[in-house]
Design a protein around this nucleic acid. Structure first.
Length: 416
RNA sequence: GUGGGCGUAGCUCAGACGGUAGAGCACCGGGUUGUGGCCCCGGUUGUCGCGGGUUCAAGUCCCGUCGCUCACCCCA
């Protein structure tokens, strides 16, 4: 144990049967994306460091202290992606996808990396399901994206959760709010150390400080909603109206600002109960200025990320475990084994999950194995069966057994 | 980066005052010369995280170290 090489800190193996649940979630997401017109994009997990620095914001925790950054052999500074949006946008601009007609709807799945101290629901390599809709500032799109997220979460049977929404305004009103907030914060004593720094560098971040003392001070801080310009206010109202119309329950959360600098207007988060401190299973928002920030054209967009690792923690244990039937072939003696192997392949070609033992176990041991593999049926094949041309077909749940002609077995099993 | 808890068999864990390592589960075999799940019997598995110290003797005490975990922070 001492000398064995282990997975590195904050990274882990996801093993069966757990992987079945992951597949169920990913399949559900793909299906929902399909009906909403989203298509998959696959991206590198490494990008130039500058991409993230410019998009996420140098003052954010992600960029300032959580990135896996290293120099490659040519001395270029590269970073394991801490999130997907910047990379999606880079790919869109680089490949000219933004020039296509209509709203560009993309999704992507995969690992992200952040160098943080691991804890429950927080890993250094974690997995996200991401979607991005680019090319429209219409509030209907905001609503659609949130509805789609809601559909996915419903489909995977997420239990108790809350949807928090807020509007961060456009650069215009957000700047005004920041100024007002800044003034307010500067006039206050006793903010925590972090917030004293943040009130200068990024006053919005102070709003979701967890310190009870800071929260107290913030109770009569200016509220973003009061600062929204008419356009932003109307946009937000329309989004909320649509959510209500489709029966999505949400909570307005005026303190929700999120950790990335690029968000504008709609921001939202889904928190699950029973997850401990890291309870956000999904989060997202609009990022109208990001494309230009990255040297592209004006390209209003909105997206979200689902944290798969966290989501798994609260989903039903048996998610996706309703596989089709399994057949086990128990063979006695070499001639029967040989025959069984042919049958094994015949069943598999029919799409039936079939297994047998190659090691020459006793029938008892093979039955036991069939049981542990959760076989629904076991075919027993020995010299006697080879002679009569009929195998014993045993239904494991009941123990009922019947003789079936060997040549008919694949057909009979397919029909069960 | 900061704090708390914990590191004993593949897994979950027990090991009062230091005396030379156990249980359950799992796994393999037998009870049934060709029939699983229950039951019974037998068997395999450990550098007691690592290093050092105290001691006749350390899983047990002390120091250090590494790892895991939860929380702060932050976020998916």
């Amino acid at each position: 144990m001492a000398g064995k090489i282990k997975a590195i800190r904050g990274m882990r193996d996801i093993l069966p049967p757990e992987t079945t649940r992951w597949q169920a979630v990913e399949n559900a997401a793909r299906e929902v994306f399909r009906v909403y017109g989203y298509r998959e994009i696959r991206l590198p997990v490494i990008e130039r460091t500058e991409l993230f620095a410019r998009s996420i914001g140098t003052e954010t925790d992600i960029v300032s202290k959580e990135m896996y950054t290293f120099a490659d052999r040519h001395g270029d500074s590269l970073t394991l992606r801490p999130e997907a949006t910047a990379a999606v946008l880079r790919a869109v601009l680089e490949n000219g996808l933004d020039k296509a007609a209509g709203v560009k709807k993309l999704y992507t799945l995969g690992p992200m990396f952040r160098y943080e101290r691991p804890q429950k629901g927080r890993y250094r390599q974690f997995h996200q399901i991401n979607c991005e809709a680019l090319g429209s500032d219409a509030p209907e799109l905001d609503a659609e994206v949130i509805l789609m997220l809601s559909d996915i979460l419903k489909k995977v049977q997420l239990g108790a959760s809350r949807l928090l929404v807020n509007s961060l305004g456009c650069p215009g009103c957000q700047a005004e709010f920041k100024a007002g907030l800044s003034q307010f914060l500067m006039s206050k004593e006793g903010l925590c150390e972090d917030c004293q720094r943040r009130r200068v560098t990024n006053p919005l971040r102070v709003l979701d400080c967890k310190s009870v003392h800071c929260k107290e001070i913030l109770t009569d801080a200016p509220v973003l909603k009061d600062y929204l310009c008419p356009d932003c206010a109307a946009h937000f109202a329309r989004v909320l109206e649509l959510l209500s119309r489709f029966g999505v329950t949400y909570e307005e959360q005026p303190r929700l600002v999120r950790g990335l600098d690029y968000y504008t207007r709609t921001a939202f988060e889904v928190v699950a109960v029973g997850l401990g401190a890291q309870d956000a299973v999904a989060g997202g928002g609009r990022y109208n200025g990001l494309a230009q920030e990255l040297g592209g054209p004006e390209l209003p967009a909105i997206g979200f990320a689902i944290g798969e690792d966290r989501l798994m923690e609260v989903l039903p244990e048996n998610l996706g475990q309703n596989a089709g039937k399994t057949v086990f072939l128990a063979a006695l003696g070499d001639p029967a084994k040989d025959q069984a192997f042919s049958l094994l392949q015949a069943l598999r070609q029919e799409g039936i999950a079939a297994e047998m033992d190659f090691s020459g176990k006793s029938l008892k041991a093979q039955m036991s194995l069939a049981d542990r593999l959760a076989a629904d049926y076991t075919v027993i094949l020995g010299d006697r069966e080879l002679e009569t041309g009929k195998a014993n077909l045993r239904r494991m749940a009941t123990g009922d057994q019947q003789e079936v002609s060997l040549s008919l077995l694949p057909m009979v099993l397919a029909g069960l």
